[in-house]
Amino acid sequence: MATQQKASGTSWVRKMIVAGALSAVSIALFLTPFGYIPWFAGASLTVMHVPAIIGGVLEGPVVGGVIGAIFGITSLIKAATAPQGPIDVFFTNPLVSVIPRILVGIAGWLIATLLRGLNRQLGYLAAGAVGSLTNSVLVLGALVLLQAIPLQLAASVFVANSLVEAVAAAILTAGVVSAWKGIEHGRSRSRLADEA
């Protein structure tokens, strides 16, 4: 059953299937309560865009971009047809809901590739953080551009929420990519070894 290696096959077919599967993870997280880590005062950290970063890191910028695009279009449609709250109103504009998401995975790929020589684990963490910040900056920027919110508000949201979100994205990206690639989390043995 295990397919550790592919003997043959067209690589883009596999890439597209991986992109489809990771897009589905994004969409499933988005449409269920599990895409949001509840934080405090009703605010939550969203992690739905993390699969796009993972796709970018694992399979390159095209896959990352495609996952972001599919997720973005889904969020655009859902914001228009089944809005969950006031903020969704602004997500009916593709400038807010689609364009930033496309760039998330590409940013992740870029950072992971740049830092590959340095330290892989660090690269994945940075890819997650930068990918997530790309999302925040572009979404907030687009909202400001559309005059939906003033710059001051965008800045305070960025400080209060986006930085923490970036930390969460970094942890999740590194967690999945290391697990998939079988790279250790900076340790070579079980934490149990430190118990007792």
Binding site: M1, T3, K6, G9, V13, R14, I17, V18, G20, A21, L22, A24, V25, A28, V47, V50, P51, I54, L58, L172, G175, V176, A179, W180
Partner: peptide, 16 residues
């Protein structure tokens, strides 16, 4: 998050 994503990647491989 890890098992959901890993399973998605595994399923993608199987489907391919």
């Amino acid at each position: 998050f890890v098992p959901v994503t890993i399973r998605a990647l595994e399923r993608a491989e199987l489907l391919a």
